[in-house]
Design a protein around this nucleic acid. Structure first.
Lengths: 226, 226
DNA sequence: AGGGTACGTGTACGGCGTACACTTTGTCAA
DNA sequence: TTGACAAAGTGTACGCCGTACACGTACCCT
């Protein structure tokens, strides 16, 4: 009798796996923001006691690394048979899409002390694209640095919230930040009628991307010429 | 008698001020990293009980904003009478120096949800430089975005630790990350003899900066021509 | 039958940010 | 001189966090 009872019992919910844990963590961070991701809440959503997680990830740091790797895995692989420029362009835009889907990801990414294999893979393949496109090692190196550097440091937030600029607030700011206000109003007028709207981030990103890619191309030509 | 005793008593250490708090916080973060900055430790170093801090800053968030503003205040003001390109170049390099002095700053900066007045000032004056240099509003806008965008997202860490690359480890990585290894070894050979050393970050940064500035200049010329 | 292994649990600890009520100190008017 | 008031610092306490460690429980293989 005891033998006939095989599966029934308490349905014994399917066991945790590292993958289930990572997925749940990403989902939790996606809605609610990264600061609402704690081991305890994560365990809750998985219907499990906090310490159970530690059978699948070493600690929270490793959890974060795993989440990042998941995001990187979402980046489409390079297309084949196109020019270096097209391929790099597509790759970068794909990476951007992945990071936009998980707004917490870039911040975590930048706070991680050492890169995971997935990150190394991505960078390696990116450099491979340039090498295959005819860039010298040295130039590929410069180019990689250029793509990784941000000149301002603190700018993004300003453009992020451009979706809703209160014209009244703008007027109040005008004496103190004339250029910012000028820019904000100009951007609003550009894209149609509504004062909200702000500027098109995707367009701006591609603008920057193309400016750099063109710069790279010029450098490459100079390189082969000499 | 009781009257004659004015200052002596317990020397009554000079009182906390918002400024002293911020300074101590920056110092604590500078050596020890940002993660070792807690309200409690900060209070300790000031010889005070944790809650005393809250008489001078509203909460930890505001403390961080205040620290950031301190860093921004360290950025040299724009030089006068030079071309837009020279001025912008100097300003950006000055900002970089300030951020390098406080390695925690860029991460905090990027995690802050809304910009402080000091940040707005900085950005406003930067855009002013472009406007004064003859850039149209629209172009200044594009340029600002370009300077604020980072194409890779996750690259910096790779170059940071380039100070000490173990050649043996490099050899081991070669099959998996051929391009990275190729680049690392090439960079090491470049700058003299030692395999350590890695690449010159300052040089790479200026390379990227100049590439962009040249790109901006070309855009500006095209703008005036049409 | 029994022992090993993988998985989940329970309890506990030290650290964190900070609310709230308090004492202490310095200032100034009466 | 006094006494009221504000500003500065204190003490206690709460709820959150990550996670060490010892323990149960379910399954597999001999």
């Amino acid at each position: 009798m005891a033998q006939s009872v095989r599966q029934p019992q308490p349905p014994r919910r399917d066991p945790l796996t590292r993958d289930r844990v990572l997925r749940a963590a990403v989902a939790l961070a996606d809605d609610g923001g990264i600061e609402s991701l704690s081991m305890r809440k994560l365990a809750d959503t998985l219907g499990v006691v906090p310490m159970a997680l530690y059978k699948h990830v070493a600690n929270k740091e490793e959890l974060l690394d795993g989440m990042i790797d998941g995001v990187i895995a979402e980046i489409d692989p390079p297309i084949r048979g196109a020019s270096w420029k097209t391929t790099v362009r597509q790759r970068i835009l794909a990476a951007r899409q992945a990071l936009l889907r998980h707004p917490w990801a870039s911040r975590i990414l930048e706070s991680r002390p050492n890169p995971t294999p997935a990150q190394l893979d991505y960078l390696n393949s990116m450099i491979g694209l340039f090498r295959a496109g005819g860039f010298s090692i040295g130039l590929a190196h410069h180019v990689a640095h250029t793509m990784g550097s941000r000149l301002f440091g603190f700018t993004q937030a300003l453009f992020d919230d451009s979706g809703s600029v209160d014209p009244e607030a703008l007027e109040q700011m005008a004496p103190t930040y004339p250029y910012l206000v000028e820019m904000a109003t100009a951007a609003s007028h550009d894209d149609g009628s509504v004062v909200g709207g702000g500027c098109d981030d995707q367009y701006e990103f591609e603008f920057a991307l193309d400016l750099l890619l063109d710069g790279f191309e010029r450098l490459k030509q100079r390189q082969s010429r000499k």
